[in-house]
């Protein structure tokens, strides 16, 4: 019996993809992220939830060093991707971001054709040897973004001409085109209508089979639908991190419970 439990547990557990220890983030003098430690698993959807301004987006942006673009932001602590510290001096953020992709809140396709939007990442990272290769990558990415059927006849139309939901799926396809290992999504559905949201959520579920997905969301229902692990942030602290079902049915910390029942946030 013990063996069986162990095997079951082994099947459930995935490798640790990102391991964050004692992360502090300062915006100038403001201490935005206070001593956060979390282990993100591979092939899993991890949700970051919490009230507005609690630091979830900030922490997310640390994972692919997007905070580097903000001058007054200072990050301390360790964040390891596959055992390597991403803030190591030898690490070029450009290479990091090929491995850790990001999808933003408001869909931001480039003012280029759909084809060029997807092809941009592979081109700059030199992932395709020739045009046929590139065509292949574009098609695969668009399929993975669950948008291929809708745009396969108009690959050279501008990306900005699509509807909101299509644009976001385009951005997701663009993000996977660089063959990342981790996919970060910052409130990907907040600018979309319910039908588009449903499409994207379905897509996220498919994506977790190949990538580690971290999604920041405002909607607890979405977190419950989509993720396997959930982290609850509050005022810059990571309050609780556990399986999604446990967080939503039997949270340990009273703050978590207050948030879930709607008393705060």
């Amino acid at each position: 019996m013990n063996d069986m439990t162990k095997i079951e547990g082994a099947i459930e557990m995935n490798d640790m993809k990102i391991s964050a220890k004692g992360v502090q983030v300062y915006y100038g003098d403001t201490h935005a992220i206070k001593d956060v430690s979390v282990e993100i698993e591979d092939k899993t959807v991890t949700a970051f939830i919490g009230p507005s301004g609690c630091g979830k987006s900030t922490f997310l942006r640390c994972l692919n060093r997007m905070n580097d673009t903000i001058d007054i932001c200072r990050v301390e602590g360790d964040i390891l991707l596959d055992g390597e510290d991403i803030y190591d001096k030898r690490v070029d953020p450009v290479q990091l971001r090929a491995k850790v992709g990001m999808v933003f809140q408001k869909p931001n396709p480039f003012p280029k054709s759909i084809y060029d939007n997807i092809a941009y990442g592979p081109r700059i990272h030199g992932l395709a040897k020739n045009k046929a290769d590139l065509d292949d990558i574009v098609e695969k990415s668009l399929r993975r973004g669950a948008i291929w059927d809708e745009v396969k006849d108009r690959l050279h139309a501008p990306g900005t001409g699509l509807s909101g939901g299509q644009q976001q799926r385009l951005c997701i396809a663009r993000a996977v085109a660089t063959e990342p290992e981790v996919l970060l999504m910052d409130e990907p559905c907040s600018a979309l209508d319910p039908i588009a949201t449903a499409q994207v959520e379905e897509l996220i579920d498919e994506l977790r089979q190949s990538y580690s997905v971290v999604i920041v969301t405002h909607s607890m229902q979405q977190a419950a639908r989509v993720s396997q692990k959930t982290a609850f942030f509050h005022l810059g602290n990571l309050v609780e991190y556990d399986d999604t079902t446990k967080i939503f049915t039997n949270p340990e910390d009273p703050r978590t419970e207050s948030y879930i029942t709607g008393r705060i946030g």
Binding site: T69, V94, R97, K106
Partner: peptide, 15 residues
């Protein structure tokens, strides 16, 4: 030019 466009590009790992 909106910053979102630049962010999208940086997010893909462009210099």
């Amino acid at each position: 030019v909106p910053q979102a466009m630049r962010d999208g590009s940086y997010g893909l790992g462009a210099t």
